[in-house]
Design a protein around this nucleic acid. Structure first.
Length: 325
DNA sequence: AGCCAGGTAATCC
DNA sequence: GGATTACATGGC
């Protein structure tokens, strides 16, 4: 499949203004994240696609202290309003104005956090996804294995998203809620192999086609999101925590439950309320950030999707474009 | 073969 | 209320 070519249209200089250290590499690339073809990372650079309004945008990120440099690529009518939206999106997605000092000071007092802090100090929460996109990811994580989550994500992006080429890299890009709303349930089931999720995904597309991020401002998101069929406490917490970037909260699931039980309780597993209470006790106001550090530290020495050597990029591109291209 | 995965909704008592 | 169970699918 031949990707759409995006041209260089802008360069953004995004200052990192929060107090405390900043770890560019572990902010933009997370060792625990599985690869869906939406982003690629080498030791010095990262590439990522975004939907800004209906535009498909490719961004190449690098860091020149104290500034994140974003080279922007598009093939549509890129206007000043898009520039503003993209700047705000990048700044929020990677927490460029958030403080790390308070958490770092707190974490230094907790022995269990010493190793994660040594490896990751200055890492910020990242969520390049918007509300709709993170909702889809959380849906695809429900009660299944990561290998199947990855397969379903790739199916959806391949069949309903976009394939683009910019700055030497080929990547996939998300579909918009309106684009996904046109896809029949049977396609989700038979072509995308979503299983019972095929019934709930159309509710997601419709909800977010009708409610933009701006519409949702001021709502109690944890409650509002649970009005969507297929969204329960876990999915709502993931969505709300990414939307609010509240450092105090985190969605607990079987995965992080076991990691946190081992890290802070010394047991293989534990009751969710016990873990949440202990995390809040150890890291008052910062339990969400602390959970992020424990989970990412679990994968720093064996990342799910390792950084690419720059010489491996052509092989990456060929894998995404498929045979015969 | 059967069990389980980074849950949810429906249906019990 | 809290406990129990079906729900799709694929990997081990």
């Amino acid at each position: 499949m031949t990707p759409r070519h995006l041209d260089h249209t802008d360069t953004l200089h995004l200052p990192v203004t929060g107090d405390g250290p900043f770890d560019f590499r572990h902010t933009v690339w997370k060792p625990s994240h599985y690869a869906a073809g939406l982003e690629a990372h080498t030791p010095e650079q990262s590439w990522r696609t975004f939907r800004v309004a209906d535009l498909v945008v490719g961004v190449r990120l690098s860091y020149d202290e104290p500034t994140v440099i974003a080279d922007v690529y598009t093939d549509g009518d890129y206007k000043p309003v898009h520039r503003e939206q993209l700047s705000a999106r990048l700044t929020a997605s990677y927490g460029l104005r958030e403080n790390t000092a308070a958490f770092t000071a707190l974490a230094e007092q907790v022995p269990e956090m010493h190793e994660p802090l040594a490896a990751l100090a200055g890492m910020r929460q990242s969520c390049p996804e918007d509300h709709f996109e993170i909702a889809v990811i959380a849906l695809l994580l429900q009660n299944t294995t990561i290998s199947r989550t990855t397969a379903m994500t790739r199916n959806l992006l391949t069949n309903h998203g976009q394939l683009v080429r910019f700055a030497g890299i080929t990547l996939r890009a998300w579909f918009t809620p309106a684009e996904l709303a046109k896809v029949p349930e049977a396609t989700f089931k038979e072509q995308d192999r979503l299983g019972y999720r095929a019934k709930t995904l159309p509710h997601f597309a419709r909800f977010f086609a009708d409610h933009t991020t701006d519409d949702l401002a001021g709502e109690n998101l944890t409650e509002k999101f649970q009005e969507i069929k297929g969204v329960g406490p876990y999915t709502a917490a993931v969505m709300a925590s990414h939307a609010s970037r509240d450092p105090a909260i985190f969605g607990i699931d079987v995965w992080n439950r076991k990691i946190l039980a081992r890290r802070i309780l010394g047991t293989e597993d534990a009751n969710p309320t016990v873990i949440i209470d202990r995390m809040n006790q150890l890291f008052p106001g910062h339990a969400g950030t602390a959970a992020l550090y424990f989970v990412e530290h679990e994968y720093v020495d064996a990342p799910v999707a390792p950084l690419l050597d720059p010489t491996a990029i052509s092989a990456w591109n060929e894998a995404l474009e498929g045979p015969g291209s």
